[in-house]
Simulated scan of single mutants.
Amino acid sequence: MKPRHIAQIILLSAVWGISFLMIRIAATTFPPVWVGMLRSGSGAALLLVLLKLRGNRLPPRKMLPWLLAVALFNNAIPFSFFAWGEQTVPSNTAAVLNATLPIWTMLLGMAVHRTKMGLATILGVLIGFGGVALVVYSRTSDPAPGQGSLTLGITVIVLATLGYATATLIAKAKLQGLDPIGLATAQLSLAASMLAPVAALTRHPAHITL
């Protein structure tokens, strides 16, 4: 592996990891649905500019049902649910819970394809979930950003991770071969469109701080 590739992996990990802290900060001011809408909307706006500059193409309209499903499970629900969960769950714990994504993806994939689980797979799943549970519950004494049920927060974040896994399977089955920039632009735009009316009809941010 070249040094450039290592640097890219470190940068990607930093950007991915810091998002959980940024969600926690945003959730102190914005309601969860607003966090989801702002993440989707700002991402869509940036990608639309990139789309025009680079000449990438949006997915064909016939893909709209699958794009809506992926936008719902990969963006609208997780973005809002992580903000909801991090009202009571520390951001580092949320990041650890997100590490269950590969396990959920594998289990859902096996369920969809009716694949039997071997002993090695069962042991791997148990070890994976056991490790996550050990780390999460060893941090229950960490200060949480707000008052509320830690168990509810953990449950909501796990559901968000399940949403990611569901979207991964849908995209792999139905959205292969599409322009990745166009696909991401469509997903985020549709997610923002889903969340905007919900945000407008529910609780608004009271005091927006710097």
Rank of each mutant, 00 (worst) to 15 (best):
M1V: 11
M1Y: 12
I6C: 10
I9V: 15
L11V: 09
L12S: 11
G17L: 08
I18K: 05
F20Q: 09
L21I: 12
I25Y: 12
A26D: 08
A27K: 07
T29D: 13
P32F: 08
V33A: 10
W34P: 08
G36Q: 07
G36H: 14
M37D: 07
L38F: 10
R39Q: 09
S40W: 02
G43P: 01
G43V: 01
A44E: 02
L46W: 07
L46C: 04
L46S: 05
L47E: 00
L53S: 01
L53T: 01
R54F: 01
R54Y: 04
R57W: 02
M63D: 14
L68K: 03
L68V: 13
A71K: 03
A71D: 01
L72H: 03
L72V: 13
L72M: 10
L72P: 04
F73T: 08
N74V: 04
N75A: 12
N75C: 14
A76N: 04
I77G: 06
P78T: 00
S80K: 07
S80D: 05
F82V: 06
F82T: 00
E86C: 00
E86G: 08
Q87I: 13
Q87P: 07
Q87T: 01
T88Q: 07
S91P: 07
N92L: 07
T93I: 15
A95P: 04
V96T: 07
L97Y: 11
N98V: 04
A99L: 04
T100N: 10
P102Q: 04
T105H: 11
T105L: 12
M106H: 13
M106I: 14
M110E: 14
H113S: 15
K116D: 10
G118E: 13
G118V: 08
A120W: 13
I122R: 15
I122S: 15
I122G: 12
I127F: 13
I127T: 11
G128Q: 14
G130I: 10
G130Y: 11
A133C: 03
A133M: 10
V135N: 01
V136I: 05
S141H: 14
S141M: 12
S141K: 11
A144L: 06
P145Y: 06
P145F: 06
G146Q: 05
G146T: 07
Q147L: 12
Q147H: 12
T151E: 14
L152A: 15
I154A: 09
I154E: 15
I157E: 14
V158W: 09
L159C: 14
T161W: 09
T161E: 13
L162C: 12
G163M: 07
Y164M: 02
Y164C: 00
A165K: 12
A165F: 05
T166P: 03
T166R: 00
T166A: 14
A171L: 02
Q176W: 06
G182C: 06
T185S: 10
A186P: 00
L195P: 11
P197Y: 09
P197G: 10
V198R: 00
P205V: 06
T209N: 09
T209H: 09
L210G: 15
L210H: 11
